[in-house]
Amino acid sequence: MARKVVANITLSLDGRTTGPAGPYDMGWIVPHSITDMARDHLVAITDATTAVLGRSNYEGFGGFWPTVVDDESADERDRQFAEWLNKTEKVVFSHTLEELPWENSRAADREPAEMIRQLREEEGRDIYVLASQSIIRHLLDAGEVDRLSINLAPEVVGGGARLFEDGLQASSWTLTDLATSDSGSVWLIYDRVR
C-alpha cells in the first residue's frame, strides 16, 4: 500500500496562514487549536510514521511539544501527540539549520517533491506535512499531496502569508470528512481526485 501524503494546516477565512506582522503572527490560531475537535485531530495524526517540517515549524514545535509529554496538567490528547512527535521520524527542510537536536530528526537532502517521492518508497504509514506552508505549496504544485487537512478558522486576518497563491497547478479535490468545533472552526478533509 502506497504511503499517503497529508498536508495539515490551519487557514483563516481569507486564506492566511500567518497574520500581517509576519511568520510568528499566529495568535488568531490559538483559540481554534485547543478545542476538542483539534485535539482529537492531533490524536488521529499519530498513526502516521513520518512528520515533515520546515525550519520555522521545526524550531517552534521543538520548543513546545517535547516537554508536554511529562506535563501532568496537559490534556491527555496533547500528551499523546507530543509523545508521537518525539518518537516519530521528522524530516526537516532547512538551508540554515546546522543541528537538529530533537530526537529522530533528519535533514532533507533534496528538494521537497523529490524527497517526498523517496519517502513514499520507504517502509511506513502516512506522511504528514505539519503546517509548513512553503513545503505544502511546493508539494501541491508538484502533485505530491494526496490529502488536505484544513482547520478553517472563522477569522479574517487581513494580511500575511497565503497557502494558495496564484500560479499553483489546477487540481480537483473531493470532501471526505468534516467536523465543526466549539470555537466555530471547521475541519475539512479533502482527498485529491487523480
Score class of each variant (00 low, 15 high):
Ala142Met: 09
Glu103Pro: 07
Phe93Lys: 03
Phe81Ala: 03
Gly54Ser: 11
Asp47Glu: 15
Ala21Gln: 14
Phe93Ile: 03
Asn8Pro: 00
Val69Met: 04
Asp71Arg: 13
His138Ala: 15
Gln80Gly: 06
Pro20Cys: 11
Tyr128His: 14
Asp126Phe: 05
His138Ile: 03
Met26Leu: 13
Ser94Trp: 06
His32Met: 07
Ile45Tyr: 05
Asn57Gln: 11
Tyr128Gly: 00
Ser132Gln: 06
Phe164Asp: 08
Arg147Asn: 02
Glu99Tyr: 08
Val145Arg: 02
Asp70Tyr: 08
Asp177Cys: 04
Leu148Gln: 11
Phe61Ile: 14
Pro66Leu: 08
Leu13Gly: 11
Ile136Lys: 01
Arg117Tyr: 02
Ile116Tyr: 04
Arg137Leu: 05
Leu97Pro: 00
Tyr24Glu: 14
Thr50Ala: 08
Leu148Lys: 07
Ala82Phe: 03
Thr96Cys: 06
Thr18Glu: 04
Glu111Asn: 14
Thr96Gln: 12
Trp84Glu: 03
Ile189Arg: 09
Asp47Asn: 14
Gly63His: 10
Asp25Val: 08
Ala107Lys: 12
Val91Pro: 01
Glu89Pro: 00
Gly143Val: 06
Val68Gly: 00
Gly143Tyr: 09
Ser171Thr: 12
Asp126Asn: 14
Val129Gln: 06
Leu119Glu: 06
Leu53Trp: 00
Phe81Leu: 04
Ile135Thr: 07
Ser181His: 02
Arg55Thr: 07
Asp70Phe: 09
Asp126Gln: 13
Thr17Lys: 03
Ala161Gly: 11
Arg110Ala: 15
Arg125Trp: 00
Gly160Ala: 09
Asp109Tyr: 01
Pro20Trp: 10
Val129Pro: 01
Val69Glu: 05
Pro31His: 09
Gln133Ala: 15
Met1His: 13
Ala161Phe: 04
Gly19His: 00
Gly54Arg: 01
Asn86Pro: 02
Thr50Lys: 02
Val69Phe: 05
Tyr190Cys: 08
Gly167Tyr: 07
His32Thr: 04
Ser134Ile: 08
His95Met: 11
Leu53Ile: 00
Gly15Arg: 07
Ser105Lys: 06
Gly19Arg: 01
Pro112Trp: 03
Gly184Trp: 05
Arg77Gly: 07
Val145Met: 10
Phe93Cys: 04
Leu140Gln: 10
Trp28Val: 11
Ile9Phe: 13
Ala107Arg: 12
Val30Trp: 09
Asp25Lys: 04
His95Ser: 15
Trp187Ser: 09
His32Trp: 06
Ser172Leu: 09
Asp191Trp: 09
Ala107Met: 15
Ser33Phe: 01
Glu89Ile: 05
Pro66Asp: 09
Leu13Trp: 09
Glu121Pro: 01
Ala107Gln: 07
Arg16Pro: 00
Ala107His: 04
Val52Ile: 15
Glu114Asn: 05
Leu148Phe: 13
Gln133Cys: 01
Lys87Trp: 01
Leu119Asp: 02
Tyr24Ile: 05
Glu72Asn: 12
Arg120His: 10
Ala170Tyr: 13
Ser172Met: 11
Phe93Val: 04
Ser183Pro: 08
Ala21Met: 12
Gly167Phe: 06
Arg16Thr: 02
Arg117Ile: 03
His138Leu: 04
Glu72Ile: 04
Ala170Gly: 13
Leu148Val: 13
Arg125Met: 02
Trp173Gly: 03
Arg110Gln: 15
Phe64His: 12
Ser73Phe: 04
His32Val: 03
Arg192Asp: 07
Ile189Gly: 07
Tyr128Trp: 14
